[in-house]
Write a protein that binds this DNA or RNA. Structure first.
Lengths: 229, 229
DNA sequence: ATTACTTAGTGTAAAAAATACACGTTATAT
DNA sequence: ATATAACGTGTATTTTTTACACTAAGTAAT
């Protein structure tokens, strides 16, 4: 057994997989890199962890610097540690995901010159990505496919007030299959975590649907009980 | 925005949470440390990743060095990255778990002087652990509680041939609750991934139970279908 | 105002799965 | 022979899942 004494010569990076929903398409937040390596390539928002911050804190900072977004709760899902995943040295990347409602309000403005721009890009229509980011993204998609069956991720993608058809669209997009409308409604209402509002949808051609809100209070009370799609 | 250029000054470590089942108790594999910091403390088998190995490879190597165990498939489940989790510098730890059948065959012999010894210790009766290892272990337990509902982890804990009562014990131990015998059997047999053998249990006082094998072939065919406890 | 269009919203019957529940059987040990 | 302790089994009830199609309501165009 050869004993190589390992030193403190690794870098640790964060990569953020942000899913967004604009009412019809599932999107991912990408940046266009302004630095080598992979200058001018599209990439997940990501950068190196600083020594005086935890990886969770780092994820928040990096997301903000590269996209301008702050206070986004992200969940860690995997650490990528292949030897040659970064051309400039040994970098372990810790990946996070989050779900985000889109709708213009949140500005996308990189604060760091590290990114030329940040942009929501349709998952179904992705460019070639830097590093192993396609792989990181694929693994993120797998994770949320599993987790959306048990966790209320869908409501993080939706605006505060939403219609049941919108909820169904999110599930269909993420799971990649069509669901029966009546059965879907029966099931999602059976969890009793949606509050029906007096209000109706506005600004649509054709019949307006009833709006609902996600009731976090009631959801938290469910804890322990499994919900399942 | 202060730009600190981060250097390659992190270390990355692996910690292994190995669950073992001896027929009645759920155990964890711990080592007694022979090095500072936390010399003489109990700890999860863990050490630093070398620069020329992936984190997955590293997990295999480290497990072998500290416990003598090789060819154990481990699954990564979380990266721990608090700033002060290691007293001697900035160390990010990537945690892995595995499930293991116990039964004396596998020798526990640290090959490295880093560990004085390795030992299976009852989960219900743990000593104080080094670093944040208690936290890492707790998170590992949570993970397997969730995953055993959908993945055939139980059979990794059991000998090749096992009785249905043993399978039930494993589920009860990990889930932390009693299950109904007839319903459990009905359900687990309904997945059709257990092969009933001609053979019966031997060396027990009282009536011997029929032995079963896990049929990996059939299990792999199930893929896509969710199995669920 | 009529019409055409599009999405909203609803119920039921059948099948499948989950649950609750108790006793005769069988191998061993004395 | 008997006592022991775990083995192995079935049914009725409830709950959940699935499959399936039409009317209602609002908008837009003529």
């Amino acid at each position: 057994m050869t004993e190589i004494t390992p030193g403190f010569d690794f870098a640790v990076s964060i990569d953020c997989v942000l899913f967004g929903f604009d009412g019809s398409e599932l999107k991912i937040l990408l940046i266009e890199r302004n630095e080598e390596p992979f200058k001018d390539w599209w990439a997940l928002p990501g950068n190196l962890v600083n020594k005086e911050e935890s990886v969770d804190q780092s994820a928040q900072r990096i997301l903000k610097e590269l996209t301008g977004l702050s206070d986004i709760y992200m969940e860690q899902y995997y650490a990528f540690g292949e030897v040659n995943r970064h051309p400039q040295g040994r970098v372990i990347s810790v990946a996070y995901y989050a779900m985000l409602r889109l709708g213009g309000e949140k500005p996308l403005k990189p604060l760091s010159s590290y990114a030329k721009k940040a942009q929501w890009i349709n998952v179904a229509d992705l460019p070639k990505l830097a590093f192993d980011h396609q792989h990181i993204l694929n693994k993120g998609l797998e994770k949320i496919k599993r987790r959306i069956k048990h966790l209320p991720l869908a409501f993080e993608l939706l605006p505060e007030k939403f219609t049941l058809t919108q909820v169904q669209s999110v599930y269909e997009l993420i799971l990649g299959k069509k669901l029966d409308k009546r059965n879907f409604r029966k099931k999602i209402l059976s969890f009793k975590v949606l509050k029906e509002l007096e209000e109706k949808q506005r600004g649509v051609s054709f019949r307006a649907a009833t709006l609902y809100k996600f009731d976090k209070r009631k959801y938290n009370k469910l804890f322990g009980k499994e919900i399942s799609f």
